[in-house]
Design a protein around this nucleic acid. Sequence first.
DNA 1: AAGTGAACCTGAAGGC
DNA 2: TGCCTTCAGGTTCACT
Length: 297
Amino acid sequence: MPELPEVETVRRGLQPVFEGSRIVAVEQRRPDLRFPFPPDFVASLTGRSVVSLGRRAKYLTIHLDRDPVLICHLGMSGSFRVLSESTATIPGDFHYERSKNEAHDHVVFHLQDAHGASHRIVFNDPRRFGFMLFSTAAALNEHPSLAGLGVEPTGNALGGALLAELLRGKRAPLKAALLDQRLIAGLGNIYVCEALWRAGLSPRREAGSIVATTGRTSVRCERLAGAIRDVIAEAIAAGGSSLRDHAQVDGSLGYFQHSFSVYDREGHPCPKPGCGGTIARIVQSGRSTFYCPSCQR
DNA sequence: AAGTGAACCTGAAGGC
DNA sequence: TGCCTTCAGGTTCACT
């Protein structure tokens, strides 16, 4: 499910509930997800207070009043939802979103906030590609999951010059290079397809071919860097994309999926004014790519 | 060494 | 209805 905008949406949804709350209990309902839980998972979290929630690429980081830091990844189908006692009709009865299969509720955090109100945060993940691991605060950036991640596509860090540097000499298809988390961290299948369409660049093109050979910054790199920043910022503002099931933590849906130009739109007309092309689906490194063969060169 | 494909796992959707 | 195949927002590992 989740690329950077969805994970950021989750972070913003969980933040007001987690921050300043104490973890009074943790239910860990199975020994593993994609990886085994840390052996001291429950004991290390119980009784701790949550100081802040962070995000790096598609990883959520939960910072406590002392080590460890909890690193969470949602995989393809992971989601969090918040159940607050205050929204229940009966005290002690937590409002429960029953549309999801409870068999895949793998972790439940029981929280008490600064006002004494109780909350539960439930992690659900049918495919179990997600995971939760520990790090220390001091070595967080050297944790195997986070070390080696590339630049965030948010803010102004990613510009044409940096993108050119990252892609120079790369023989892989442009699509594959943009999915490489060591170069740009947080893009996934949807937003790569959308950014390439916005930039008018073919996903099949050799990545290094958009880098100017002379010293001048490539106009294609500038255009692509801008398209990436724009699509990510717009998607975050829209609360992410909700496909099959992905929801915000209160169960509501993001709405960026309504803004897709190419993703999952095979056979539809290209939305670029005057283009007249038809969106095609091809497979690159085992994954669907959607693009317009007419205006993406 | 960079690049490609399979593996991990479950559920939804479509064809017959 | 059921059975089969294909596909899904990601990462990692094994291979060329």
